[in-house]
């Protein structure tokens, strides 16, 4: 029997809110699928479109960018720049025909361990029917 497809997700989490939120999920022993590898960055505003393309290029089945809620950015407004930048990346990925489910953005505060858990669980469930992401995966 073929093994069930387990999507590989790269999650760029801002240090102050989303990474802290995922820590809270841990402290609260909430359970979510182990498909996501978190990469903590200082701010969602520091996530370059290159990171996202690179993750897909290196074979990610899904990519998540998560930052502080608007108004709560540790760096005052980094998440607002992220919101605009990510919106454009999402439109572009959609336009070239990548499944929109594969690229997500979320606001997760340091208090939202539950929300983080939910986002990851939903993300994994949404990616499973899509199968492996091969469209942008490096193939040389």
């Amino acid at each position: 029997m073929a093994e069930q497809f387990e999507p590989r997700i790269v999650a760029f989490l801002c240090k102050w809110c989303s990474s802290a939120g995922s820590d809270l999920a841990g402290v609260s022993r909430m359970q979510y699928p182990p498909n996501v590898i978190p990469i903590t960055v200082m701010c969602s505003g520091s996530v370059s479109p290159l990171y996202i393309f690179d993750a897909f290029n290196k074979g990610a089945d899904g990519v998540l960018v998560s930052g502080c809620h608007p108004g709560d950015c540790h760096y005052i407004k980094g998440n607002y720049y992220a919101r605009r930048r990510i919106a454009i990346v999402k439109k572009l990925l959609d336009f070239i025909g990548l499944e929109p489910e594969r690229f997500q953005m979320s606001w997760v505060s340091a208090a939202e361990g539950k929300k983080y858990t939910q986002i990851i669980s939903d993300f994994v469930e949404e990616l499973k029917p899509l199968g492996p992401q091969t469209k942008l995966r490096r193939n040389i």
Binding site: C43, S46, Y75
Partner: peptide
């Protein structure tokens, strides 16, 4: 915060110890 880093089109400004080069390698390892 690195917002400059993501904005720069020429990779001319980087935050020490969280450079794109580091993130690139982290993505690969992840």
């Amino acid at each position: 915060c690195g917002t400059c880093q993501a904005t720069c089109l020429r990779a001319a400004i980087n935050v020490k110890n969280t450079t794109p080069s580091q993130v690139h390698e982290m993505i690969r390892a992840s």
